Simulated assay, not measured.
Amino acid sequence: MSEVVDGLVTVIPAGGVGSRLWPLSQPHRPKFLLDLLGTGATLIQDTVARVSPLSERVVIVTGERHAPAVASQVPEVPAANLVTEPSPRDSMAAIALAAALIEERWGSQVMASFAADHLIPDAEAFRATVREAARAAQGGKVVVIGIEPTEPSTAFGYIEMGEPIDGDARHVVAFTEKPDAETAAGMLARGGFAWNAGMFVMRTDVLLGHLDRLQPTLAAGAREIAAAWDGPSREEVLARVWPTLTKIAIDHAIAEPVAAEGGVAVVPASFEWHDVGDFDSLAELSEPTGGAVSIGREAAVATVGASAPLVVGGTKPVVVVGVDDAVVVESDEAILVTVRSAAQRVKDAAGALAEA
């Protein structure tokens, strides 16, 4: 039986730089365009391959400067379905424009939105969860896919799950921003919480209807741009209207207020999911046994009194002496030396270099 879900359009917002993966990830070369694990496929290529069996239509929303690289990496996505934004306006503007454009072209559809830079090894389990979420969304709920927590992480938001609705879907009681360690540990101890990975499934008319109430300026602007997108006035309308759209995340614009009204459901997922947000998580994914990890290079990596280094890029042999969990990264632009425990601080590296 075909895996395609009737009336489902997949939207892939491809934005963000991935500043904690500097200098690999740069404004001109964001994380989703990289083959981080050395598998031969970039993150956006993995994402398109994972969602394509679910829906005959895939729409990618990305920045104008990244559009040529995206088109080159995923030629199976029609050029007309590559939607470019002239400047970042956060996730709600991108998703709203995609929803309005879908309605302009194909009428009301179920829309599933998944980030371009996440890693999900079990594609079949992912697709089974999305099919369940799409079924729940047909009834008019905004549906979020909740990831089963593996630890009390402070890097993700949390979803408090309530009573069952139908099938695997449950009411969302509330969303919690990234908590401190004590709060996260308490959530896991109580149970009934899932990580919020930013995966949303909903009917386009439901999403735009909520936006009409909660963010009317953004909703009207997205509809105006979408109405002009396939015509001769696209550039004029986009240049005039896009900068006026409210800069807000979908979590704050839709998920949180609609959940307070009882309009959001969650489908819990048990598949393995990774944000690949920094070099510590990259090292864990690449070599869980604790040995040396070498990515994107052929030259030797050796250690003297050191364990578990991560060495990425570069053409010369690297020796790590006396530093456990070292991270050495070389790109065309710069060399980074740090340790895995400081991986979250790498986001400040580019600024530090600019001030040097």
Rank of each mutant, 00 (worst) to 15 (best):
V173W: 04
G296D: 04
A94R: 03
S113F: 02
L8K: 06
F271Q: 02
P149M: 12
A269F: 04
F279K: 01
A349R: 01
G16L: 11
A93F: 00
W106M: 09
A181G: 08
A125E: 09
D348C: 08
A184M: 11
A14G: 09
L34P: 01
A197M: 10
N81H: 15
R29W: 08
A219P: 00
A226V: 00
A67R: 11
V264T: 04
E261V: 11
E355K: 14
I12W: 00
A334T: 06
A299S: 15
P27F: 01
N196C: 12
D212N: 09
V346Q: 00
T176R: 14
V48F: 01
E85A: 15
H118C: 14
F32V: 05
W229E: 00
K347R: 13
S52Y: 07
T129I: 05
V206D: 07
L33T: 04
A133T: 03
W106C: 09
V11E: 03
R345Q: 14
P317N: 05
V320A: 07
D275G: 15
P243K: 07
F126I: 08
D46C: 08
P86M: 07
V267I: 06
A300M: 14
G198W: 04
V346D: 01
M199Q: 15
F156L: 15
G139Y: 11
A356K: 11
Q73M: 14
F32N: 04
M187R: 09
L37D: 03
A115Y: 12
R50N: 08
S286V: 09
Q344R: 12
A306I: 08
A299H: 10
W22H: 02
A292Q: 14
L37R: 11
E132S: 11
M92G: 15
G157Y: 04
L34K: 06
E124Q: 13
V11W: 01
E56Q: 13
G191S: 10
I12S: 02
G192I: 13
E124W: 09
A128K: 02
T244C: 09
A259P: 04
H274R: 13
E261Q: 13
A239N: 10
L188H: 01
A249K: 09
V5L: 05
A265C: 06
L282I: 06
A239D: 15
L336C: 02
L36A: 04
R57P: 05
L21N: 00
Q45L: 11
G198T: 03
H252C: 07
G296Y: 12
T39M: 10
D180S: 07
R345V: 07
L8R: 07
V312N: 01
D332V: 05
A69I: 15
E104P: 02
S108N: 15
R65I: 12
L211V: 02
A197Y: 05
I250A: 10
A155H: 14
E103Y: 00
A49S: 12
E177M: 08
G277A: 13
V172Y: 04
S341E: 15
A49C: 10
M92H: 12
E132W: 02
L208N: 01
G167D: 03
F156H: 10
V83K: 00
F193G: 00
L54T: 04
M111H: 08
G192R: 10
A253H: 02
G15E: 07
V328A: 03
A80C: 09
V346A: 01
F193M: 03
T84C: 11
P232K: 06
G262K: 11
V173I: 12
P179W: 13
